[in-house]
Simulated scan of single mutants.
Amino acid sequence: MLNDAPATATQGAAAAVIKDATTASFRQDVVEASLRLPVVVAFWSPRSPQCKQLLAGLEKVVRGAGGRVALVRMNVDEHPAVWSQIGQQLQLDSVPAVVAIDQGRPVDVFVGALPEAQLKAFVERLSGPSEIDQVMAEAAAALEQGDLAGASELYAAVLGQEPDNVAALAGLAKIQLDAGEVENARQILAMVPESKANDPALAGIRAALDLAEQAASLGDLAGLEEQVAKDPDDHQARFDLALGLAARGDREKAVDHLIEIRKRDRAWNDDGARKQLLTFFEAWGTMDPDAIRGRRKLSTLLFA
């Protein structure tokens, strides 16, 4: 339930199960254990740097799964018999190799080191989405329904569990920005760790903040509207008017004014109209109707 999610998200995650198996313990640690929860078995060799890289990534992802999946490491140099048997059964001939076991049966496998995002996807296929992911999905649904207070509570619950969750910070900042609280949005973004400052999840909200600050400096739009009506080729006035209209929520007219600039002079201000349109699209989001409409109009001009 949506209203139960904040409490769920703030509960302590179960400790991750990470252990080393031996030939003698393999059945108990892997086969029998997989009857209770899925087990990821990593076959590795200490002689391989790639194996060490994979193990570090797997351990991080499994810990993030909060006890919904176990990780068992198997040193093939110390326990060649188990590796030989599994390798023959699954046609594996090199390490690192990772096998997912559920209910005593192999259900997924890969060979070689993978990026963290792919490791996470591998584990989630086995264990399902984490509680954090579920709450983030519910926050997005609340936003779509216009429930800003509910979405804020959900994002806050996630941050109580993961203070550096970039997507939750971006979501809270967007809510503040939509409410006109530009400084509050800036302060929330200042909480993003420096190591995650370039996370793609921040691009949209940063673009939206920049637009809000640009528009705030324009003041009343009546003068700009009069100037554009008087001189349709005053591209700077039309450009500024587009910024102001976008800030006031009139996205359709904002897009149309920038498209008009590009129709009249596509080279103006180093193709500034097209660049500003792309900034709009990034700030509004991929599925925003005005962004979709604007992309179509811009594409028509590009290929005209």
Rank of each mutant, 00 (worst) to 15 (best):
M1F: 05
D4W: 00
A7S: 01
T8M: 14
R27F: 08
R36V: 00
L37D: 04
A42L: 13
F43W: 04
P49M: 05
R63D: 15
R63N: 10
R63S: 13
V69E: 05
A70I: 03
R73Q: 13
R73M: 12
N75Q: 15
H79R: 11
P80E: 09
V82T: 07
W83P: 05
Q85D: 08
Q88V: 10
Q88I: 07
L90A: 01
L90C: 07
L92I: 09
I101N: 11
R105A: 11
V111Y: 00
P115A: 14
E116I: 11
A121L: 05
P129L: 10
Q134M: 14
A137C: 02
Q145P: 02
G150Q: 04
V158C: 06
V158N: 07
E162D: 13
A167Q: 08
A170E: 04
I175T: 08
E183H: 06
Q187F: 11
P193L: 01
L202F: 12
A208R: 09
Q214C: 07
A222H: 03
A229E: 15
K230F: 11
D231F: 01
L245W: 03
R248D: 08
L258T: 04
R266E: 04
G272R: 00
K275P: 01
E282D: 02
D288K: 03
D290V: 13
A291V: 00
A291W: 00
I292A: 15
K297G: 03
T300M: 13
